[in-house]
């Protein structure tokens, strides 16, 4: 009896979590006039919303921009994060603890303080409407550094000493000798970074005004907020589907890794 109640609650909750996604996808395939009365399946299916979306806004371009920006940031965060993390874990230098505490301090600093001056920095550097504005400020990720530091600390010093005796440079030690043994950390950092940059909206809204440089969530946001989409709900929903789809496909393949990565980010 008790079990039955638990299952009913779980199933009802699961439906309430899936239904909005289901509704959105169905509505994006429904003729504009029928969306208002859609509950489950549309009477007729149409791709008009998608075709008019592609003709109205540069969504293809935005998709490529987002792919490019997210990939470069993810690559950079893994490379730079592992270098800094390695230095903190396995080398000795003056000020090592100081740097470590700086990273902790930066992580606890509310972004509300740095938002405005960082925008001004971008303006003064002439990076407004440039990919550099979207990429450079995100190349260092404090949390990634801490994760790399932690996983390098668990690697036996003997492995590193042996590589040094063999004449390996520190860069080769990090990327050739040690990388194979920290793959879980690389995956975690990769997923977290890609997902957060893919979904980031506030920063692109601030530093990019040129439609050709806009990221996908930014374009979808402006399209939803601006007057252009109001008349066409179906197009707005279609653009939301396009934004959600890549991450949802990735999630369907790597659920476990997504959940583990996000959980580790909460546990920090």
């Amino acid at each position: 009896m008790k079990k039955a109640i638990i299952y009913i609650v779980l199933i009802v909750m699961a439906i309430s979590f899936l239904y909005p996604f289901f509704w959105m996808i169905m509505a994006s395939l429904t003729p504009e006039k029928q969306i208002g009365s859609l509950t489950f399946f549309p009477d007729s299916i149409t791709f008009d919303n998608y075709t008019s979306m592609f003709s109205k806004i540069p969504i293809g371009r935005a998709l490529l921009n987002s792919m490019f920006v997210s990939s470069v940031i993810t690559f950079g965060v893994i490379m730079l994060g592992s270098m800094v993390g390695y230095a903190l874990a396995k080398t000795k230098f003056n000020g090592r603890n100081f740097i470590f505490y700086l990273i902790i301090f930066t992580m606890t600093l509310p972004f509300q303080i740095t938002l405005i001056p960082n925008y001004i920095t971008i303006v003064k550097l002439g990076w407004v409407d440039q990919y550099t504005a979207l990429i450079i400020p995100f190349l260092i990720n404090n949390f990634a550094i801490l994760l790399f530091r932690q996983s390098f600390m668990s690697i036996p010093q003997a492995l590193i000493d042996a590589a040094r005796i063999d004449g390996c440079s520190e860069i080769r030690i990090i990327f050739q000798v040690l990388f194979p043994s920290i793959i879980p950390t690389i995956v975690t950092v990769g997923i977290l970074t890609f997902m957060t940059t893919w979904n980031e909206v506030l920063w692109p809204l601030i530093v990019v005004r040129d439609e050709q440089v806009m990221t996908l969530p930014q374009l979808v946001t402006l399209f939803s907020v601006g007057g252009r989409a109001d008349a066409q709900l179906g197009v707005k929903l279609a653009s939301a589907v396009i934004l959600a789809l890549p991450i949802m496909i990735a999630y369907s393949f790597f659920q476990k890794y997504f959940i583990q990565s996000m959980a580790s980010s909460g546990i920090k």
Binding site: F21, M24, V201, P217, V220, A240, M248, Y251
Partner: peptide
């Protein structure tokens, strides 16, 4: 967990 990974923009539009 699904809504966690999806952009806030998508969730808001839905």
């Amino acid at each position: 967990f699904l809504p966690v990974i999806v952009s806030g923009v998508v969730v808001t539009i839905m």
